[in-house]
């Protein structure tokens, strides 16, 4: 006997990152399949979703290039997110939003990142340009701009390390500690992270050098470097202040160190 799912359930894909499930509803089967493939490992059930978005795809020439300026702002009580390849409206209180976008994985990926940054900002967490991994039950973040070594440190990870991401880390506050959660936001490795989480033990600021060493970092530099790597898109002073305070809180609770390293597996011997 086969079970026929309600139409809405069949049209919906729920993506759960950091314990936050977002349902995406589209009537285009091939686009839905693309989403399912891209976010495999992070798929949840639509029933447990915290928010849902209806997606309509642009037709032909409607879409502009993805490199157009990104705009994220509150308009008429709703978040407006737009770039050349998408335009989305989202009402967090109603739990619902609409996305019009190009038939491209990059557009939905960008919308998801923005939505998570807005949600995390109110919870003391953030998305940060950092690779992250779990080893021995502890999570470690490796932050840096493009070229700093996120992909390299990820490639060098020993077999017992579980890679959460090589590009965008998800940091969630839980009481007086932080959790690092896996994300499907991949970088050069083009490999989605593992969907698991662990208490964060340290954040390392990556720097390539001639030998492996861990160096202390002053509070101001730690906050400044962290802020430089946090993803935040909204033109909203209240949320900017929240992100600033979150970075300061994080720096007061989690050790932030400079990791100078040579591209050699031995660097992982000093990470603990």
């Amino acid at each position: 006997m086969t079970t026929t799912l309600p139409t809405t359930a069949k049209e919906t894909v729920s993506i759960e990152i950091g314990g936050m499930a977002i349902a995406l509803r589209t009537q285009n089967p091939s686009f839905r399949q693309m989403i399912e493939n891209r976010y495999a490992g992070f798929l949840g059930t639509s029933r447990s979703s915290h928010f849902e978005f209806d997606i309509d795809l642009y037709e032909g020439s409607e879409s502009a290039p993805a490199n157009d300026d990104l705009e994220v702002k509150i308009e008429e009580g709703e978040w407006l997110l737009q770039r050349g390849d998408f335009r989305a409206r989202w009402n967090p209180d109603a739990g619902h939003g609409q996305i019009r976008q190009a038939c491209s994985p990059y557009a939905i990926d960008c919308v998801l990142r923005i939505v998570h940054t807005l949600l995390l900002a109110r919870q003391g967490g953030f998305l940060v340009h950092a690779a992250s991994a779990i080893r021995g039950g502890k999570a470690f973040l490796f932050a840096g701009v493009s070229g700093a070594g996120k992909t390299t440190i990820s490639r060098l990870a020993p077999p017992d390390a579980k890679l959460l991401t090589d590009e965008i880390s998800y940091v969630r506050r839980e009481g007086n500690r932080y959790l690092a959660c896996g994300t499907p936001f991949a970088g050069e490795l083009a490999r989605v992270g593992e969907n698991r989480s662990a208490p964060l033990s340290a954040l390392f600021l990556l720097e390539k050098g001639l030998q492996n060493s861990i160096e202390p970092v002053g509070s101001v530099e730690a906050v400044q470097r962290l802020l430089r790597n946090i993803l935040f898109f909204a033109d909203d002073p209240e949320l900017v202040e929240l992100v600033f305070q979150s970075a300061c809180e994080f720096a007061s609770l989690v050790p932030i160190r400079r990791l100078v390293f040579v591209p050699d597996q031995r660097v992982w011997d000093i990470i603990r």
Partner: peptide
Amino acid sequence: SAIAARLLGGEMMVMSTADSTFFT
């Protein structure tokens, strides 16, 4: 009022929430 400020490790950090300019 368009600023965020925090005393951390004995140093005062101030950031403009309008343009994210950061001062110590």
